[in-house]
Every structure is written in structure tokens, then in C-alpha cells.
Design a protein around this nucleic acid. Structure first.
Lengths: 141, 141
DNA sequence: ACAATATAGTTAGCATCATAACCAATAACG
DNA sequence: CGTTATTGGTTATGATGCTAACTATATTGT
């Protein structure tokens, strides 16, 4: 991600704005600043994950799988919902995660459309290794 | 973009955290919340731009070109800096923007490596059309 | 002057995301 | 029952981003 490095100044916003009608310069400026901060943070996180061969999505999937230890298995559709990404993304993400050994598919369920899966030991190990740095980046941001 | 729909609760953060050392639950939670809000906002903006055949990057390029009316022409490298995206992205973005008539290349400069360009009338028109909605979304977010 | 370096921009290759269209299996319902 | 709708998941296609490697021109430094 990214976002304007040199944020529009208040002057500039009101410059754009005064030809328009109702622009709350303060609110707009805040929103832009937030977008910028978030972009930088996301970038930092992505770089951190990439350093360990994960994408952010993969990391978040690991979080979800690990978090809910009560469930013995999870479904792509549910992960999809929690993560708020499209189905195809989860589909391919899970495939590569399986290839790399971070998740394993369980035995089939009664409903044979479903492909229940869970985090593997390697996956959990990696997640736990990355968590401290993850929180550190979040806090500093 | 995207980010965890159901944000990690404080309990969850401290759940992850207590095995770790120093985690400021408050700060971490705030950061996650910001990421989530920013993701939603960016998504909304992208949808808005897409509705008018622009990507966010294209829109921001238009902003930059329009903003600095003092300069008669701009360079890809400078845009790149201001926007904080990689060179190749600007390169291809500008190419498609030219194809669609939103920018025009000026006469060559003395330094023949440079390809000075400026916003076209069509580009400026589109930008001005989109600005109100842009600010509206920002404010609401 | 000329070799080494830096800069502007492009191209190639890859990862990730999205939407749309598609199976296959289950559920709903007349 | 049997047709229709829904649901879990995949595949196809296209947009956008990145890094690395490239061309071509300018600049620096000896």
C-alpha cells in the first residue's frame, strides 16, 4: 500500500474545498493522516512478514486458526468471513499454505463439500515466532 | 485492502500477549483498529474511483498534477517521490493515463532523459468532478 | 578526454487482490 | 420425489503493486 507522502496541507484542502461547498477541513485532514499512517504501518508489517516468507494474509490466517483452539478444524468460508477477503484469495492462500506446510487438511466432514483444515505444528511455531515482532511494530506505529 | 473484520479483542491481545513480555494492549488495540478503519476507507475510495474508471493511484497523480499549477510540467520521478510508490508503477500508470487522455507529454526538455508531462483538460475536468465525492467519503470515514 | 557513477524511465517477472463464472454437493420446497 | 436455490470451493481473467534488471543520457572525477 501507499498514500501521499507529502500530505495535503490544510491550506491545500481548503484550497480545493472553497470551490466546493461543505468540507470539514479538520476531519478531512485527519482522515488523510490516518490513511497515510495506516499505509506506512501496513507496509512495515508486510515487509516483516515477507522477511519470513509469509504474506500478511497468510499471517492473519495463522492467527485465526491458532486463536480459536476450541475448534478442532476450520473452513475456508469462515476464515473468509473473519478476514474480509474474497473467496478466491483464501482459496489460493490456503493452497500455498498447505504446500509450505503451515496448514493441514483434516479428514473429510459429513458434508463432502467442506474441506476442514487446521494449523500445523510448523505453522504454529512460525506464528509464535513472529508474534512478538508483530506486536512491536503495531505498538510503535 | 483489508484487515481482520472481527478485530482482536483486548482479551485476545492480552491472551497472545501474556506469554510474551511487554505488550501495551491499549496501543496495540488502537493500531489494529486504525488499520481496520483505514482499510475500509481505502476500499471505499477505490470503489468510488473505479466507478469513474480511475485507480486510486491515477486519482492521486491527477491531484498532484493539478495541485501544483505553478509548475508548467512535471516529471515521473517527482510524482513518484510525492506519491511514495515505485517507479515502475508510475511508469505504467502514466502510460495508461496518457492513453486515456488524462495527461499529455510536453515537448522534450534539455535533458533528453526526462519526459515532462502535465494534466490535460479532460484530466482536470474529471478530477474536479470527483473531488466533492472524494472529500465526502474522507469526512464520513 | 574518458572511465565510473548516477539518474530518468522502461521492461520482465512475480505476488496479491478482486469479480465473474464455474463445479459439486446439500438444502428447501412444491 | 424432483426441481430449484444455496453453499463450499476452484478456476479464469484482469488490475495493481513490488523488486530486479535493463537502456539511455548526464554527471563526476581523475
Amino acid at each position: 500500500m501507499f498514500f501521499l507522502k507529502d500530505l495535503p496541507t490544510r491550506e491545500m484542502i481548503s484550497g480545493f474545498a472553497h470551490s466546493l461547498d461543505v468540507v470539514d477541513v479538520q476531519k478531512t485532514g485527519d482522515a488523510l493522516q490516518m490513511l497515510r499512517r495506516a499505509s506506512l504501518l501496513i507496509r512495515q508489517l508486510e515487509r516483516y512478514f515477507a522477511l519470513h516468507g509469509l504474506s500478511q494474509t497468510q499471517f492473519l490466517v495463522l492467527m485465526i486458526l491458532h486463536r480459536d483452539q476450541s475448534k478442532h478444524s476450520h473452513l475456508a468460508a469462515k476464515i473468509c468471513e473473519k478476514l474480509d477477503v474474497s473467496k478466491p484469495v483464501i482459496s489460493t492462500t490456503l493452497k500455498t499454505m498447505q504446500r509450505r506446510g503451515f496448514i493441514v487438511y483434516c479428514e473429510k466432514a459429513e458434508d463432502s463439500r467442506m474441506k476442514p483444515l487446521r494449523i500445523s505444528d510448523a505453522g504454529r511455531e512460525l506464528l509464535l515466532k513472529l508474534l512478538p515482532g508483530y506486536f512491536e511494530i503495531l505498538q510503535a506505529g
